[in-house]
Write a protein that binds this DNA or RNA. Structure first.
Lengths: 193, 193
DNA sequence: ACCACAGTGGACCGGGCGGTCCAGAAAACC
DNA sequence: GGTTTTCTGGACCGCCCGGTCCACTGTGGT
């Protein structure tokens, strides 16, 4: 499939329109017709740009959203070298999910696309990169003596990832961001001790 | 709707059959016909016992599964009074989810039933009870001097809940139980410090 | 100017699935 | 034993929605 400039623009419009829709509406039951209407396109176009249909489109949207997740945490996530950087990162994460409220675009995608290999790969890759940055941050703090050297950086980084995921899930279910805050604060406390 | 003994038995058979099916199969796309086939019943019976159809049935299954979640952690969860009790609890949680693998019945239900008020209530109630037990455990440890008194018991309990939820979610996505272990171990370490 | 191919619109199809309906079997009640 | 209520089976309906198809319209290259 060779794409012209116009084609690329349309394809992108579909992805971004679908992402915006997912970010603002009920996760359950997002239909191709919805996306068609939102993006001002037609069935023909959707299947022209995503020949494998719904799954391929949703995977593209998932990849797009996965990129945004880490971007929204920059530049803090990439330079966790001081305690104040950790605090700013904490605030950025909370602000992001607070703004998003109970609509987690990635979560919505995942519950739709189910457990296809492609979906698993997107999530795994995102979590790996995320955890890597946190681990790097902890190790740098250890290098400068701000965190005790006997802390297992990778294990605590994994705890951070789990805590954030769980906090977001609780936010989605109950609407309360307290668990996300508690998780981040407790783990940062742990590093400080 | 007045139920005879036979009726109650059939109703229960439907719930338990559906729960077993959910526990062992692809979350996405569980259909009433599947449940009908598994439980050896008929459409008429399903709508006889669950007049509001799919949503009512799935909510009943969710309530049933929510009960099991805490039961599977007993008696450890109810008596977190020594470090070895915490270790046994940790092991019970990990064993439970290790056995369950990537099939989280409650998670599957939630992604199907979406974000109806009833579903939110089931999850909220489960998480509250769960967190309460953990908080009680921390406070008892503080009373006996095993945990420092300046630890915010409720906040750390919330971090536990978030960490467990996130760990399970990572398990569902990636198949790795490492995050659940890391989360529990790190938080218990934190209490010990 | 022409042609090949990308882009676009929308009618149409077919299966899946939640839900309805009713008729007959089985209990329960008097 | 008769009548009323509950229980059971399964045929049937209708919509929703993913996917197909094809005709038409740009657009870019030579």
């Amino acid at each position: 499939m060779a794409l012209t400039a116009k084609g690329r623009a349309t394809r992108q419009r579909i992805i971004e329109g679908a992402a915006a829709y997912l970010r603002s509406d009920d996760p359950a039951g997002v239909t191709l017709d919805d996306i068609r209407a939102i993006t001002g396109t037609s069935k023909g176009q959707i299947f022209h740009y995503f020949p494998d249909g719904k799954e391929e489109l949703f995977l593209a949207v998932a990849r797009y959203e996965a990129g945004r997740v880490l971007d929204d945490q920059q530049p803090h996530l990439g330079a966790l070298t001081t305690w104040s950087a950790w605090e700013r990162w904490r605030d950025a994460v909370i602000a992001r999910y607070h703004a998003q409220g109970r609509n987690c675009p990635l979560g919505a995608l995942m519950s739709q696309v189910g457990s296809t290999p492609g979906a698993a790969e997107v999530v795994t890759s995102l979590l790996n990169r995320w955890q890597f940055h946190v681990k790097e941050g902890i190790e740098e703090m250890q290098d400068t003596g701000l965190v005790r050297p006997d802390v297992n950086a990778d294990r605590v980084a994994a705890a951070f990832i789990a805590g954030i995921q769980g906090g977001v899930q609780v936010l989605r279910s109950t609407g309360s961001i307290a668990h996300l805050e508690a998780s981040l604060d407790t783990l940062i406390d742990h590093l400080r001790s």
